[in-house]
């Protein structure tokens, strides 16, 4: 996994609440069997008009946000479907961190599995960041994961919390499965010591 240490980049404002994963990556693109290549379809229904041209009214289509690597959004970002295609699509579009007042659970987990950082900040801070990103062309932020602070050119804006284990995994780019496999003897011990009859799953005729 790609490590995440410090990220500096343009912040794009998506001033909407409850952005669901159906919006981030609509169902017709979930048929791909790869992890990559979802970027062009990210926010598809908002981003493009029916004739396939870019929708000039969609916030993220403004020229100043094309190089953005940070997304600032409203509360409950990533709600709905468990599709990991959502963080894949954002990442493929160049976004490596999302800042919001709150996130839906599964999306939040999925980000960490892909070297992406979801940052929870107070609603008032997000409002301020949304305003600055809208008003100042090229407004950039720096997210320092080691020190857990978000800053801009003028200085530190806010500190944020992150689970220490997840932080370590992100900074070192660790593979979860590899970590768990180090505990293989414990898994085997658990399996052999249980006194339960689990249903097994052979296909029935």
């Amino acid at each position: 996994m790609q490590p995440f240490t410090t990220l500096s980049g343009v912040a794009a404002p998506l001033d909407r609440v409850n952005v669901d994963t159906d919006q981030i990556i609509p169902k017709q693109f979930l048929k791909r069997i790869e992890r990559t290549g979802f970027g062009p379809f990210c926010f598809f229904d908002w981003r493009y008009k029916d004739d396939g041209s870019l929708n000039p009214d969609f916030e993220l289509n403004q020229p100043e946000y094309q190089a953005a690597s940070i997304l600032v959004a409203g509360r409950n970002f990533g709600c709905g479907s468990s599709r990991e295609h959502a963080p894949w699509a954002l990442e493929d579009m160049g976004i490596r961190a999302v800042l919001a007042p709150s996130f839906a659970d599964i999306f939040f987990n999925n980000c960490f599995k892909n070297g992406m950082l979801p940052v929870v900040l107070p609603e008032s801070v997000i409002e301020e960041l949304l305003a600055r990103a809208k008003e100042r062309p090229g407004y950039a932020l720096t997210i320092d994961l080691e020190n857990q602070v978000v800053s801009d050119q003028e200085g530190v804006i806010a500190a944020f919390d992150v689970d220490p284990f997840r932080k370590e995994c992100l900074i070192r780019g660790l593979d979860d499965i590899g970590l768990t496999m180090q505990h293989e003897p414990e898994i085997t011990r658990f399996e052999t010591s249980r006194n339960v009859n689990l249903p097994t799953t052979p296909v029935l005729a």
């Binding site: 992890r35 468990s82 599709r83 990991e84 295609h85 963080p87 599964i106 987990n109 999925n110 599995k113 892909n114 689970d163 979860d176 499965i177 768990t180 496999m181 293989e184 898994i187 399996e191």
Partner: peptide, 20 residues
């Protein structure tokens, strides 16, 4: 509960899940 694809891979490989 529902999980993402990376977690699907984790469960396939280990039959466990890291959970808070």
């Amino acid at each position: 509960f529902g999980i993402g694809t990376s977690e699907v891979e984790h469960v396939l490989a280990t039959q466990t899940l890291q959970q808070a």
